[in-house]
């Protein structure tokens, strides 16, 4: 970390590149000049970055939630019905290989340039991974648990809720994790191209104002949010499942 930061500072101060292209992280190159740190702190204080983060996160959460619901539903149908697996299941593999930003032109034509288009590509970016992971999870529920539940009188929706869903939780968590990463990529691309507000929009502004200090600040924000999500949400979920099931720990 220290090595990376100091290397960056040295390159920045070596005058190889103009300051706007390679802004210093901590120490200004000329008195009163910009640093990434100061832009970051000012952005937080003025609320510019916080506001944009809020906009992006709320879009992300809505799109992600839609993707999770759709993914679980598709996954369940694929695991439950052979013909859905043969048709949709095959199709999903193809869809999964299409980067979600490719849908953007279509989304703009369908929904206009705005929130809905961005939500659309976020959702579509995360849905397919979620579908693949949840169908794998549902298919791999040991028949022992299903048989045990059925002889105890469970069936239909009750069986899905009390056995199939909890038994595939380990698969679902890894699905959520990957889907979350895909959703992030989708939303940044979407906002860069045509979002009002949001971190992607701020990035685009940073580009047009040629203030790379802003761009780098936003990258830091994204990194921090990603780390927090991973450590506080997904890791914690994994650990609690591992503890309960007696795996690993």
């Amino acid at each position: 970390m220290i090595v990376i930061v100091s290397t960056w500072e040295i390159i920045s101060k070596s005058n190889l590149f103009p300051t706007f292209m390679f802004p210093p992280l901590l120490i200004p190159n000329d008195p009163g000049g910009v640093t990434v740190l100061s832009t970051f702190v000012n952005g937080l204080i003025s609320g510019q970055i916080l506001e944009a983060t809020g906009v992006t996160l709320s879009r992300l959460l809505v799109g992600f939630a839609i993707a999770v619901v759709l993914g679980l539903t598709f996954g369940f149908l694929i695991s439950r019905y052979k013909w859905v697996d043969d048709t949709l299941g095959f199709f999903v593999t193809a869809l999964q290989s299409i980067p979600s930003i490719v849908w953007f032109p279509l989304a703009i034509v369908w929904f206009g340039l705005g929130n809905i288009s961005i939500l659309f590509i976020v959702a579509i970016g995360a849905t397919w991974t979620m579908t693949v992971n949840s169908s794998t999870g549902f298919k791999n529920v040991p028949s022992l648990y299903l048989n045990a539940a059925r002889t105890l009188g469970s069936s239909g929706f009750h069986l899905a809720r009390t056995v199939i869903l909890p038994a595939s939780v380990p698969h679902l968590i890894s699905g959520l994790r990957v889907a979350w990463a895909f959703a992030w990529r989708a939303i940044m691309a979407g906002e860069l191209l045509g979002g009002s507000g949001g971190l992607g929009y701020l990035l685009d502004m940073g580009r047009s104002l040629q203030s790379m200090d802003l761009v780098l600040s936003i990258m830091i924000v994204i990194g921090i949010i990603g780390t927090i999500m991973d450590n506080q949400v997904f890791r914690r979920m994994e650990r609690s499942v591992a503890r309960k099931w007696g795996m690993g720990a």
């Binding site: 022992l144 648990y145 048989n147 045990a148 539940a149 002889t151 105890l152 009188g153 056995v163 909890p166 038994a167 939780v169 309960k244 099931w245 007696g246």
Partner: peptide, 15 residues
């Protein structure tokens, strides 16, 4: 439920 099975591996739900 008039015929309940005890399986070799028990079949308890780990969750």
């Amino acid at each position: 439920t008039d015929r309940v099975v005890v399986f070799q591996q028990g079949g308890l739900f780990p969750w």
